Simulated assay, not measured.
Amino acid sequence: MNENVVVSADRLADHLGEVRVVDVRDAWEYDGIGHVPGAVNVPFDSFRDEESDAPGTLPGEDAWAELLGEAGIAADDTVVAYDDTHGVFAARFLVTAEAYGHTDLHLLDGDYSSWMREHETSDEAPEVEPTTYEVREPEHSPFVDHEEVEAAIDDPDSVLVDTRDDWEYEEGHLPGARLLDWKELVDEETRGLKPREELEAILADHGVTPDKRVVLYCNTARRISHTYVVLASLGYDDVGFYEGSLTDWEAVGGPIETSSESSE
């Protein structure tokens, strides 16, 4: 991803005919509440593996290719994704796409509720011509395993970031992890990201600075997807994405802290 990963509603409205817009809400929301004109519906649950030992993880290359092909998306398309939850579910879609080699990926700044305030909506699904979606090897993968996370814990040049709620953090977190609830980066009024200067100040207050290697985790990799996109938009270029997150860490017997001292 790059610094242009987040796009404004106004910019999207000006370029609707040039991009593929993906709505990751449930089908009943897409059909019943309406959607961005021309958007295709790829519900969140459709691109998560819920049957493996690590629920919520990547769906697999074949499943992903079939899903996007049925949605009429090609590997070279410019894709803009949105949801109605400040972008956290849409961000997971983008991270999944990046994992399978898609490069031209963007998050709508805000969500459907904010889009509705000033822009046109539609209740008609577009006609979709299926494609043969080509999964590619990504040029760079941010994914890290538990061994790399373990190494980051003792690395003074790395910062481990827990993006969950404070009560989850207090119940148990990885040793030395800083607490940064992903919602701290969201403006409740606009439903999009806070201004760049404010984002940078919040991150710095949590010890998350561009000179550090940043390693993100949550429970099942949904919430870290949003933080990952935010960091990409700010130009952070050394970010580790712990796909297995706390689910994997506990499965391999990784140590857990229960105090809140590391959030300070």
Rank of each mutant, 00 (worst) to 15 (best):
R48P: 11
P59R: 10
A152F: 02
E168H: 07
L231T: 13
D104M: 12
K183M: 14
A201I: 01
I33W: 13
H119C: 12
R223V: 06
L246A: 14
N41P: 04
T96A: 04
G87I: 06
A251C: 01
R117E: 15
L179T: 04
P156L: 05
S141K: 12
G254C: 02
S259F: 02
T121V: 15
S122F: 11
D157L: 10
E70W: 03
R136V: 12
E118P: 04
V229G: 08
F143E: 05
D165C: 02
R20H: 09
A251D: 13
G192W: 00
Y82L: 02
H146D: 11
V186P: 10
L234K: 11
F93K: 06
P255N: 05
D23P: 06
D53P: 08
P210K: 11
A125N: 09
A204W: 10
L107C: 12
D76R: 09
Y100R: 03
D104Y: 06
F241P: 00
L203A: 03
E184Y: 06
E134F: 06
D123H: 10
G192H: 00
D123E: 13
G110H: 14
E134L: 14
D53H: 09
S259Q: 03
V95F: 08
G244H: 06
L94Q: 04
L67P: 01
N219A: 00
D26W: 05
Y30I: 00
T132W: 08
G69T: 05
D238V: 04
D155Y: 04
D157R: 15
T227P: 09
N41F: 01
T132D: 15
S225D: 05
T57C: 06
T220F: 13
E29A: 12
V215G: 13
L203S: 02
D181M: 05
A54D: 14
T227M: 10
A201M: 06
V239L: 06
E264Y: 12
D104Q: 13
D157V: 11
G38L: 01
H173Y: 00
H102F: 01
A65C: 13
L160W: 03
L94R: 05
S52I: 04
A204C: 10
A39W: 07
D49Y: 04
E137K: 15
H119K: 14
N219P: 00
A74R: 12
V21S: 14
T163P: 14
I256G: 05
D31H: 07
V21F: 08
T103N: 12
R92I: 10
Y112A: 15
E189Y: 12
D53V: 05
V22K: 03
T103A: 15
Y236M: 09
V95Q: 02
D154H: 09
V186I: 12
E127C: 10
V21P: 10
Y242G: 04
V252C: 08
L107G: 05
P43F: 01
L12K: 06
G17R: 13
A54E: 15
E118I: 08
E250N: 11
P195Q: 04
E184D: 09
A151D: 07
V214L: 02
H206D: 11
A81N: 10
S260A: 12
A125K: 08
E170K: 02
D238F: 14
D111T: 02
E98L: 11
V214F: 07
F143H: 01
L160K: 05
D104V: 13
A63M: 05
S113A: 15
E137Y: 13
A221N: 12
E188Q: 09
L231P: 09
